[in-house]
């Protein structure tokens, strides 16, 4: 996702980033090199060197840094980004499980009632166009138990 604009606020100590159609905040404390007391951000710009998918900033001390849009999405717990990460992690688990049990992809396809090509698509970690439902069904066939936990945020 491309960063459309970035604005810094030294009083609030954060950046406001427009990513696609949404606006997000990113606090200075999350920076790789946060400004020390007395230091502050003097400029911030969308960085073309990373395909405009992030921004770079310069501190009064001369230190520079870059923040990728995904760091902003991760901090803000963006649901689309989290879905992508979840799919990736479920796929890696499925790949590891497949190598540990004696089941062929053809047999998995038969048990899922789908094609072998579709099963290959599900095992491809670079494919983000599959659904969580499909991955849960695959993990069920691989005799895995998937648990989600919801808990209150720690202060």
């Amino acid at each position: 996702m491309k960063v459309r604009s970035v604005v810094f606020n030294n009083r609030r100590k954060d950046f406001t980033i427009r990513l696609g159609a949404s606006s997000y905040r990113y606090p200075y404390v999350r920076l790789e090199r946060p400004p020390a007391p007395g230091d502050h951000v003097v400029s911030a710009h969308v960085d073309p060197e990373i395909g405009r998918e992030g921004f770079s900033y310069v501190l009064a001390s001369g230190a520079e840094g870059t923040v990728h849009g995904e760091q902003v999405l991760d901090y803000n717990k963006d649901p689309r980004y989290r879905r992508e990460v979840l799919l990736y992690e479920l796929t890696i688990e499925a790949q590891q499980r497949l190598s540990a049990i004696p089941l062929s992809r053809r047999e998995i396809a038969r048990r899922m009632g789908t094609s072998a090509a579709q099963v290959c698509r599900l095992f491809d970690q670079t494919n983000t166009r599959k659904s969580v439902d499909e991955m849960l069904r695959l993990l069920g066939v691989l005799e895995c138990e998937v648990q989600f936990s919801v808990r209150a945020k720690s202060a």
Binding site: P48, E49, I50, G51, E53, H68, Y88, I92, Q125, T126
Partner: peptide, 20 residues
Amino acid sequence: KIRRGGRFVLKWDLERDSVM
């Protein structure tokens, strides 16, 4: 993420050494 001439090439998982 790896780019060539500003165009996206790949995203790499350092923990698992695999393509994302």
